[in-house]
Amino acid sequence: MSRAEVLDGPGAGLPVAAPAPVAFARLLRSELRLVLGRRRNLVLLAGLALVPVVIGTVLLVTRDSALSGQGPAFLAQVTGNGLFLVVAALFLCLPFLLPLCIGIASGDAVAGEASAGTLRYLLVVPVPRTRLLLVKALAALTFAAAAVLAVAVTGLLVGAAFFGVQDVVLLSGSTVPVGEGVVRVAGIVAYVGLSLTGLVAVGLFFSTLTEVPVGAMAATVVVAVVSTVLDSLPQLSAIHPGLLTHHWFDFAEFLRVQVDWGVVGSGLAVQAAWVAVFGSLAWARFTTADVTS
């Protein structure tokens, strides 16, 4: 127990400790390299990037057939304007694929080290546990951002290549120039990315609870799925506004004639609340836990 508990502050027995910010930056860099270089994570990102490619190809092949114009929201607009491929791909990935990838990455953050037996060595590094957790959280958030960007960037490239980019027709029927359209779609991408921060915090907390990474990953995905299920029960409408997934699709706000920042703000505030609660839970757990593996 006490062997691995060299915690806050420069480790007593260690010879030369770099100044804290430098050590932190170094730790963050190596962690990012680890997370973004891990083959499993690269496969996940590639899989996500494949989604807009598949959608774009299907739409390109069927554009003149009777099947065109069918399907879920935003799909019908894609053939007219490649920018909508970004929106359609995010819309299709948001309910399950993105939470799954994020659950895998954030659930693995601490539990992965514990199961590989590397966590105790990591704790020997003269970096406080709080900062270590912060590094883990930043790496998980970076992966979440990379996941959203993988969908968005390939969506934009494939959409522009297959269908071109035109003025954007909003849900309200107004048409805005390409420049503003790109800004609005960028707003959607940013909103979707920030909407996933709550789930990252939940995954990080589960990851500190267990040494079995699969358990933390599954639990994280289950939280997202259960939240979606609860959100679909009208009897529970009283708790809907606070649910993790309730505001995810409010990104459509960016496609209305006047963006209601109150709606966007409340969606982000709910995520901030989940981040605060589960982030502090993860911190309390990680800084008090006995690490034996």
């Binding site: 508990e5 915690l7 806050d8 502050g9 609340a273 309390a284 008090t288």
Partner: peptide
């Protein structure tokens, strides 16, 4: 346990677990 980790003033384990509670109360209050 973890409360002797640094020379600086730190929270006891129980104190640390109180933080999420305080955060939850703050969110509820907001």
């Amino acid at each position: 346990m973890a409360d002797n980790e640094t020379p600086r003033r730190t929270l006891s384990a129980r104190g640390r677990w109180a933080v999420p509670g305080v955060v939850a109360v703050a969110v509820a209050a907001a």
